[in-house]
Amino acid sequence: MSKYKNLDDIPLTFGPVQLAEILGISKNKAYSIANRPDFPKIHVGKKIVISKKHFISWMDANFFDTAKF
């Protein structure tokens, strides 16, 4: 069970392990998503850092509007 119940629970920055927890997916899949060229992240050394604000914008832009179906 995820410790992230709503958007307020997500930290301002996080990594692929937390991305996996947020989305309820495997760590391998989270790293695969985080390494996509269009995914918003920065590299600090070898570490991947994801911004909550940019992640939410990316999610909004990349999900279908299910109300149309």
Results as ranks from 00 to 15, higher is better:
3 K>A: 10
15 G>Y: 00
5 K>N: 15
41 K>W: 03
32 S>L: 03
49 V>E: 08
50 I>Y: 02
64 F>T: 13
33 I>R: 01
68 K>E: 09
3 K>M: 11
16 P>D: 04
47 K>T: 15
12 L>I: 11
39 F>L: 08
23 L>N: 01
60 D>M: 15
2 S>K: 14
7 L>Q: 15
44 V>L: 15
66 T>Y: 13
6 N>G: 14
53 K>G: 00
12 L>E: 13
35 N>M: 06
64 F>C: 15
45 G>M: 04
33 I>A: 01
40 P>A: 10
34 A>E: 01
17 V>C: 02
58 W>F: 13
16 P>H: 06
13 T>L: 06
55 F>N: 04
40 P>C: 05
27 K>P: 00
36 R>A: 10
13 T>W: 06
59 M>P: 01
62 N>T: 11
21 E>A: 12
65 D>A: 04
68 K>W: 06
4 Y>H: 04
40 P>H: 04
59 M>W: 06
17 V>G: 02
28 N>F: 01
9 D>I: 12
26 S>L: 01
2 S>D: 08
46 K>D: 10
37 P>N: 11
14 F>K: 10
6 N>R: 14
55 F>M: 05
37 P>A: 09
24 G>N: 06
40 P>S: 07
39 F>M: 07
25 I>F: 05
3 K>Y: 08
9 D>P: 12
23 L>H: 07
47 K>Y: 11
12 L>D: 14
47 K>F: 14
18 Q>I: 14
64 F>H: 14
33 I>Q: 02
10 I>L: 11
29 K>P: 01
27 K>Q: 05
13 T>S: 13
48 I>R: 02
7 L>M: 14
29 K>N: 07
9 D>S: 15
34 A>D: 00
18 Q>A: 15
25 I>E: 02
10 I>F: 12
11 P>A: 07
14 F>Q: 04
44 V>D: 09
53 K>S: 09
2 S>C: 07
42 I>F: 05
2 S>I: 06
68 K>F: 10
28 N>I: 06
14 F>G: 04
18 Q>G: 04
16 P>A: 15
34 A>T: 02
13 T>E: 13
32 S>P: 01
34 A>K: 00
58 W>K: 07
53 K>H: 09
55 F>S: 04
41 K>S: 11
65 D>S: 08
44 V>I: 15
44 V>R: 12
50 I>V: 07
35 N>Y: 03
47 K>Q: 15
8 D>T: 12
19 L>P: 03
46 K>H: 14
35 N>Q: 09
45 G>P: 02
1 M>F: 11
25 I>Q: 05
25 I>S: 06
54 H>R: 14
25 I>D: 05
33 I>P: 02
59 M>C: 12
31 Y>V: 01
56 I>S: 08
39 F>V: 04
21 E>F: 03
41 K>I: 09
55 F>A: 06
50 I>A: 00
6 N>V: 09
61 A>T: 08
3 K>L: 12
23 L>V: 05
6 N>I: 08
17 V>L: 12
51 S>D: 11
7 L>I: 15
26 S>E: 02
48 I>T: 09
65 D>G: 05
4 Y>N: 03
29 K>C: 01
65 D>V: 05
8 D>H: 10
28 N>P: 03
36 R>M: 13
26 S>R: 00
15 G>W: 00
45 G>R: 01
67 A>R: 14
59 M>L: 14
6 N>P: 07
66 T>W: 11
39 F>H: 03
